[in-house]
């Protein structure tokens, strides 16, 4: 379980203080696929990055499985990060490493012996359907395939949580669907909690059981996806959802 309590993030910029997050309270349960939606600049990435402390909260707490991690530093912080996978919009694969060495990367960082690494990498590539690409380099893969590699990499250390920052934004709709399917499978089979940022309402609709809407640094609405989507309370949520309704209208 991830509990975010009264969390704020203030950036000191050349123009003075900038509040990127204000008094955020969210609870993400084990096994959730939790969506975070909001307009560009709302603070989604900042919030996600606070969960593994890539961004240090200015105040408030992040509690994971009952342990307050906000003050973690040094080896404790490295250990925490090793147990949280992360997937990025632009894949961020190491371009000079093969597919299998990319997946092995987090294992190398943890000092897993070579033989165990190879075995684990083979399993993971099987899981994401890229066993035949093990020795290819990222440049030889399509965007969708690269993101699958990134997902395999995020899973390497058997993390309990995966953080995804707009994982499908660089992909076409068909590829997006198959990737979402993969994330759902991972969530169901392995019980991994997934936190996913997106600006595509259809993504939330397809896989998120719960969702939070963030606007202008604040959470304006959160709850079970079906409820939030069928009965949005906030104007911004309605605005975001109008996008989905148009798409649905087109499909029917």
């Amino acid at each position: 379980m991830i509990e975010i309590k009264n969390l704020s993030k203030i950036y000191n910029t050349n123009y003075g203080e900038f509040k990127a997050l204000e008094d955020i309270n969210i609870t993400i349960n084990d096994g959730d696929i939790f969506g975070i939606i909001g307009m560009s600049g709302a603070g989604k990435s900042t919030l996600l990055r606070c969960i593994n402390l890539l961004e240090k909260p200015s105040s408030g707490h992040v509690v994971i499985d009952g342990q307050d991690i906000t003050g973690f530093a040094g080896s404790q912080l490295l250990q925490l990060r090793r147990n949280i996978g992360m997937v990025f919009q632009r894949f961020n694969l190491l371009m000079q490493r093969t597919v299998k060495d990319n997946v092995a990367f987090p294992l190398e960082i943890c000092g897993v012996p070579k033989a165990d690494r190879d075995k684990r990498v083979a399993e993971l590539l099987e899981l994401v359907g890229l066993a035949d690409k093990a020795n290819n380099y990222p440049v030889q893969l399509s965007g969708g395939q690269q993101q699958r590699v990134a997902i395999a990499r995020a899973l390497a250390n058997n993390p309990g949580i995966i953080l995804c920052d707009e994982p499908t934004s660089a992909l076409d709709s068909l590829t997006t669907s198959s990737l979402l399917q993969l994330l759902k499978e991972i969530n169901e089979k392995l019980g991994v909690t997934i936190v996913i940022i997106t600006h595509e309402m259809s993504v939330v609709n397809k896989i998120c059981n719960r969702v939070a809407v963030i606007n202008d640094a604040r959470i304006i609405e959160q709850g079970v996806t079906k409820e939030v989507f069928s009965n949005p309370q906030h104007e911004m949520t309605k605005l975001l959802l109008s996008d989905l309704i148009v798409v649905k209208g087109g499909e029917n």
Partner: peptide
């Protein structure tokens, strides 16, 4: 070297 790659390294807990 792209900042995104350094970020990946931080995210997996690299020293």
């Amino acid at each position: 070297v792209e900042a995104g790659l350094i970020e990946v390294a931080h995210a997996v807990g690299a020293t």
